[in-house]
């Protein structure tokens, strides 16, 4: 006797509702009266019913989980015949010569219908030509590969390799569909598709928000106070940028069109450069001497908002 959880295809922690839903789905798919041509439906249906007799009853399920009863513990053998037994037999020709049993009839029909009819009747015919399974993979790409586009080679579990084009502007968790690269079809059916979920790895200093790139750039005290032309990195390489006079930590400058291409509209995002003023490392006696004698124009306490 099979494990009832396995029979119903539910986990051991499934709720009563989940068990009931699983039972109903399987029972409908396998009820012998709804599948008169399927000989095996009856044993499958009985197995499903027996599993549900245990798991569908709170007390029985508790006793089964506790090992007090085994999977046969609640098996109630079906005492009565199914409707199909009578409905199929109700024929004046049924016992006529030619077919000694129902199996002989099925055999004849199997030959007549080109061998497609099997244990599950005509259903097999549709299953015979089937589209292959869709397969899902995940793929890690770097921040810059996703931003600029790239071609990656993926090795599948079966050793086959797939070339995957990562389009410019691909977002984290975006799914790419590769038509016809899934599992092979059956009986001449078309293959399934491969779905690739792209995982974009974070970058050391670029951060993406929508199609804009945000980056924090350190500037020297001198560059901030006097203004300067500096070089900053973008996703497509280094560009020069002008820092205006009297810039400060937190000031944000925009580099127009230096962001990421929108994958739908094709419009370019921007890059936002946030400045961070850094002091030189080590001692600066000249600077210290200057500051001792320096009286700033703005004498306000920068912490005044915090101390109120």
């Amino acid at each position: 006797m099979k494990d009832p959880y396995e029979t119903l295809g539910v986990s051991r922690t499934a709720s009563a509702k989940e068990i009931r839903a699983a039972y109903r789905k399987l029972a409908k798919e396998n009820h012998p009266d709804l599948h008169p041509g399927d000989k095996a439906a009856e044993s499958r249906f009985k197995e499903i019913s027996a599993a549900y007799a245990i798991l569908g009853d709170e007390e029985m399920r508790r006793r089964y989980d506790a090992g007090e009863i085994d999977a046969t513990g609640a098996e109630r053998p079906q005492q009565h015949e199914f409707y199909r037994t009578y409905a199929d037999a109700d024929s004046p020709f049924h016992t006529q010569e030619g077919f000694a049993s129902a199996e002989d009839l099925e055999e004849f029909l199997a030959q007549a219908f080109g061998g497609f009819r099997g244990a599950r009747g005509t259903r097999r015919r549709t299953e015979f030509r089937a589209r292959g399974a869709d397969l899902s993979y995940s793929l890690q790409v770097s921040f810059l590969e996703a931003a600029n586009g790239a071609t990656k080679t993926v090795t599948l579990p079966d050793g086959k390799t797939l070339n995957v084009t990562i389009p410019e502007g691909t977002e984290d968790r975006q799914t790419l569909r590769l038509k016809g690269q899934g599992g092979p079809g059956f009986g001449g059916g078309p293959p399934g598709d491969a779905y690739i979920e792209v995982h974009v790895q974070p970058h050391a200093f670029f951060e993406r928000k929508d199609n804009n790139v945000h980056v924090t750039v350190p500037v020297t005290l001198k560059e901030a106070v006097l203004g300067a032309k500096i070089e900053v990195p973008t996703v497509r390489g280094v560009v020069s940028m002008t820092i205006p006079k009297n810039s400060n930590t937190g000031d944000t400058l925009r580099l127009r069109g230096q962001g990421i291409k929108d994958r739908r509209s094709g419009q370019m995002g921007h890059q936002y450069v946030k400045l961070k003023v850094v002091l030189p490392e080590g001692e600066e006696p000249e600077l210290a001497r200057f500051l001792e004698s320096w009286t700033p124009k703005d004498q306000r306490n920068p912490r005044r908002e915090m101390l109120r």
Binding site: D33, P36, R84, D88, D90, G98, F99, L105
Partner: peptide
């Protein structure tokens, strides 16, 4: 629908039985 299915099956059986003879 079930009655139609079983009726069709009975006719098919009868036909198949006639062929078998």
């Amino acid at each position: 629908l079930l009655d139609q299915l079983y009726e069709t099956r009975r006719e098919l059986n009868a036909l198949a039985a006639a062929v078998a003879r």
